[in-house]
């Protein structure tokens, strides 16, 4: 994905340029979804929160005296968090949640979401168990730094970073795949598929 400066995106929002909204969606929607789910919301809640957060952002940057004093991502996070807290305070989210589950979607699969959360806990737990240098290298890649930038930052060669990244990732995957809970859920899924 092409990278833009925060100020460029702010200017684009002011001009209502498509590229700004597309960028915000690609860049931040996943982490906001994660925040909402970690704070007890559903995937649907997360989508609503992100939309409302963006509306709040538009409202904010339209203010003549608005000045971005922090990272744009942090601002999006603060706006979405505030949105979600307001939902919770008014209990709208909770009420909607029940209405949606009971009336609209009687076949909602709770197991699916729960498994997802268990998987994610395993992913994170395993990542945190990697040795520090592995965490740092993978974090660099996850933050979309180039291998050269990561090499420079950590004081290794470019070739070493690329090679080590593959080893670290494959080690992480092995830890995940060998995790007893992960194996157990996978086995259950397999049994259900056969049935």
């Amino acid at each position: 994905m092409e990278q833009y400066s925060d100020q460029h995106i702010i200017n684009s929002i002011r001009k209502r340029e498509d590229v700004a909204f597309k960028y915000l969606q690609v860049k931040f929607q996943d982490s906001i979804r994660l925040m909402v789910v970690e704070m007890g919301g559903s995937q649907e809640d997360a989508k609503d929160v992100f939309s409302e957060g963006l509306i709040a952002l538009i409202r904010l940057v339209d203010q003549e005296d608005f000045e971005l004093k922090c990272k744009l991502g942090t601002l999006v996070y603060a706006l979405c968090k505030k949105t979600w807290k307001q939902h919770l305070e008014k209990q709208v989210a909770v009420r909607n949640y029940h209405v949606r589950k009971v009336e609209s979607s009687p076949e909602w699969d709770f197991t699916e979401e729960t498994d997802q959360q268990i998987y994610q806990n395993i992913f994170w737990e395993s990542f945190r168990q990697l040795e520090k240098v592995c965490q740092e290298i993978l974090e660099g890649y996850l933050k979309e730094l180039s291998p050269r930038e990561i090499a420079e930052k950590l004081g290794y060669s470019y070739g070493y970073i690329r090679k080590r990244k593959s080893m670290c990732h494959s080690f992480l995957m092995k830890m995940i795949q060998d995790h007893p809970t992960f194996k157990k859920i996978k086995q259950t899924e397999l049994t259900l598929d056969i049935d």
């Binding site: 931040f28 996943d30 982490s31 979804r33 994660l34 925040m35 970690e38 709040a56 904010l60 004093k69 922090c70 990272k71 991502g73 942090t74 601002l75 996070y77 603060a78 706006l79 968090k81 505030k82 994610q120 992913f123 994170w124 990542f127 993978l138 974090e139 996850l142 933050k143 990732h169």
Partner: peptide, 26 residues
């Protein structure tokens, strides 16, 4: 990878020293 990317970004946002500033704006 997708999950870790979102999680790392979320952690970065939550630990940003300027979060307080962002919350004031919010």
């Amino acid at each position: 990878k997708d999950y870790l990317k979102a999680k790392v970004q979320l952690e970065e946002m939550e630990s940003d020293p300027l979060l307080e500033e962002a919350e004031k704006l919010a």
